[in-house]
Design a protein around this nucleic acid. Structure first.
Lengths: 211, 211
DNA sequence: AATGAACTAGAACAAATGTTCAAAAAAAAA
DNA sequence: TTTTTTTTTGAACATTTGTTCTAGTTCATT
């Protein structure tokens, strides 16, 4: 793999993500993606086996970044609610800034079994960080008792939905949105009377800069 | 329009919703929908102008029900947080029980302009109930100050995402899920130290039975 | 039973889709 | 420059898609 090769590959991924975000995975055709790059259709197949390989690579890249950051966050020597805040903020930032559009298409049911299984596995792994953190918070009586899995699904739903309405030209940037979401969704789990402890600004910076 | 006609029409809508939920709007073909009903493809076009008309009708039906219930809820002589609880619970119930699958497909960008505009208008109207209720709660110092529109988007995201993972055979029914979500998402807005006041069971029943 | 309307069937069509392939062009190596 | 490898092209193919159309069947009404 040459340097040039890898660059083109990334360019294709970027264009595809953009197209998937604009028109959805189904509607975005290989010809559209090629056209964005002033490239012939067939050339895409020199870099990717097929269309599924593109969306899979895209989502894999994103979920790996999410997991990598989550692993860092969960080990930080700070309160569970503060870590949950970071986890949420980072996720919003990732899918709207670092890897925009890669999570626009969520229906993975019809991917080839092997690709789908790997993705599902990684997503589960990422979700488990939420489960662990929420469970930990409940155990420490920081959070009130609640259904851990449902809470995680609520949080992830709110976050992932952002990629449906977020626009670069909009009123708020991903970081601001992430901040509001993190505060709302983490505070909502807190025991009555307890107040969420937000992370320091430099801790946030540190997390968002990772990989 | 005869009785028979209307029945078949509804049967088609139901089958289509099921198919859309299972495979997504794009992937669900007219032939699939017809096959579910043991019906010829062409016959679908006797009842609906085209595929877009089906999804539009489906979503219109759902959003009308959501609006209708929201109008009732917002006028109830109870606290704003309690009404927000009802609004959320009812929404979860509606898209997973009353009109399952109708919100599975959310990308309305490529509908004919007239259909899309009407849908967008109705969705905005429905969203505005959240804006009003959250704004009211902030005004009464029940909720802490926050970005009203972002909070509404977070709530709607969490709710609409349920139709991606909810299964009839699952651990929890739509009402239980709605209950947990409503409690979490309404409590999360509450002023520090204030506790959400849940509605009475019969109030909930009354709302869920409507239309 | 006869008539007209309501409904259904399924082949056919045009457009769009993902994908393949052989040839050409560009780049790198000799 | 010549040769070899890498990259690009764009036409062609097989499917699948939404949709149309005509002919047939079923149904209600008289």
């Amino acid at each position: 793999m040459s340097e040039r090769n890898e660059q083109t590959r990334q360019a294709i991924l970027k264009a595809a993500a953009e197209e998937f975000r604009r028109r959805g995975y189904q509607r975005a055709g290989m010809r559209d993606i090629a056209a964005t790059l002033d490239m012939a259709v067939g050339n895409l197949y020199y870099y990717f086996k097929n269309k599924q390989a593109i969306i899979t690579d895209l989502q894999q890249q994103t979920v790996q970044r999410l997991i990598s950051r989550a692993e860092t966050i969960i080990e930080l020597p700070i309160r569970a609610d503060t870590r949950l805040f970071l986890l949420i903020l980072q996720h919003v930032h990732c899918i709207n800034f670092d890897n925009p559009g890669s999570f626009a298409h969520m229906e993975i049911e019809e991917l080839e079994a092997s690709r789908r299984d790997q993705l599902v596995k990684d997503r589960r792994k990422y979700e488990s960080f939420y489960h662990r953190l929420i469970g930990e918070g409940i155990g420490q009586a920081l959070f009130r008792p609640t259904d851990v899995k449902l809470a995680a699904l609520a949080i992830l739903g709110a976050i992932n939905y952002t990629s449906r309405w977020y626009k670069d030209e909009g009123r708020l940037d991903p970081r601001s949105i992430g901040h509001v979401f993190a505060e709302y969704l983490a505070q909502g789990l807190m025991q009555n009377g307890l107040k969420l402890e937000k992370p320091h600004t430099d801790t946030i910076d540190q997390v968002l800069l990772q990989s």
